[in-house]
């Protein structure tokens, strides 16, 4: 209902801060809290990998080829237990997964941060200056977004070769356009609003208007898109590594671990591919659960 209220009926003043309200609304979904908890566990595990892993999977001195392709739960030559089995090098899968998480998360977060920064600059420029600046930037964005990310990244990796830095470049290239578009559309909406007009009438300097007034109001949709895109970036990196076009064998991300086990799959040695995949799935799902609830909380259109 949106009746025009008679004179006296003002809205009740909000007592709690908006930040508190968002946190409370976020906590309403048990799924989202579960996702958040899972994400914290995953991030902490990845950060603490060298201390929590049973072995250092990249220290060749700790590997024993006699232990290769052991099933989950098998005992190691040194008396420990390979809870998730070993790969063809005799590497403990659990340790491999912990270290793989580090690489996957690093690539995902780093590429998202760079892509957000670039998208922010171009999106704000397009919205603020309009005219031909807007036309040129949005044309590029449109063309870029009409091609699937996987294809562009694949061709880029084929051109650039393997490596962490290179895959970040490829992921930034395929992602910046999303942010540019998100930022531009919310900035355009904000620009129409009175407070920007007021700031212009007050003749505040342009950078101040853009960064102090325009930017903070464009952030909520950006945060949601960026969260989802971290998950996408991780998935994309894993896919490229699986196809042999992502990371080199010296930096095994989760995707590379899965790829490594693919050849043993048909002979029933499922664990080499399966468990790194579960870790990948858990990571992406945790991020998506969190992003989903943030989207609902920040979407004013579902409020009634």
């Amino acid at each position: 209902m949106s009746d025009i209220a008679p004179p006296a009926a003002a809205q009740p003043a909000p007592v709690e801060s908006p930040w508190r309200r968002l946190v409370a609304e976020f906590a309403e979904s048990r799924m989202a809290l579960f996702g958040l908890g899972l994400l914290v566990v995953i991030v902490v595990t990845a950060l603490a990998a060298p201390w929590v892993s049973p072995q250092n999977p990249y220290d060749l001195a700790q590997l024993d080829v006699m232990d290769s392709k052991l099933p989950p739960g098998a005992a190691s030559a040194t008396g420990g237990t390979y809870w998730l089995g070993t790969d063809d090098q005799g590497r403990d899968m659990l340790s491999g997964i912990f270290y793989g998480l580090r690489i996957s998360l690093t690539v995902g977060v780093a590429s998202t941060l760079f892509a957000v920064a670039i998208g922010l600059v171009f999106g704000l420029a397009a919205a603020y200056f309009g005219g031909w600046v807007d036309a040129v930037i949005m044309r590029i964005v449109d063309i870029q977004l009409s091609f699937p990310a996987i294809l562009v990244a694949l061709v880029l990796m084929a051109t650039l070769g393997q490596g962490v830095g290179k895959i970040v470049v490829a992921l930034v290239t395929v992602q910046w356009a999303y942010y540019a578009r998100t930022i531009r559309s919310s900035a355009l909406v904000e620009r129409q609003k009175e407070y920007i007009e007021a700031a212009k009438v007050l003749a505040l300097p342009q950078p101040r208007i853009v960064f102090r007034h325009l930017l903070p109001n464009c952030l909520p949709p950006l945060i949601v898109v960026a969260t989802v895109q971290v998950a996408h970036a991780i998935s994309l990196e894993a896919t490229l590594s699986f196809l042999g076009l992502g990371l080199p064998i010296t930096e095994p991300s989760l995707g590379l671990l899965i790829s490594n086990g693919f050849q043993y799959l048909l002979s029933g040695k499922y664990w080499i591919s399966f468990y790194p995949g579960v870790a990948l799935l858990a990571t992406i799902m945790a991020i998506n659960l969190v992003a989903d609830q943030m989207r609902d909380v920040l979407n004013p259109r579902l409020k009634r």
Partner: peptide, 11 residues
């Protein structure tokens, strides 16, 4: 001067 009803609609 117009009169107004003081206070707000109750919840």
């Amino acid at each position: 001067p117009l009169r107004q009803i003081a206070g707000m609609t109750p919840s």
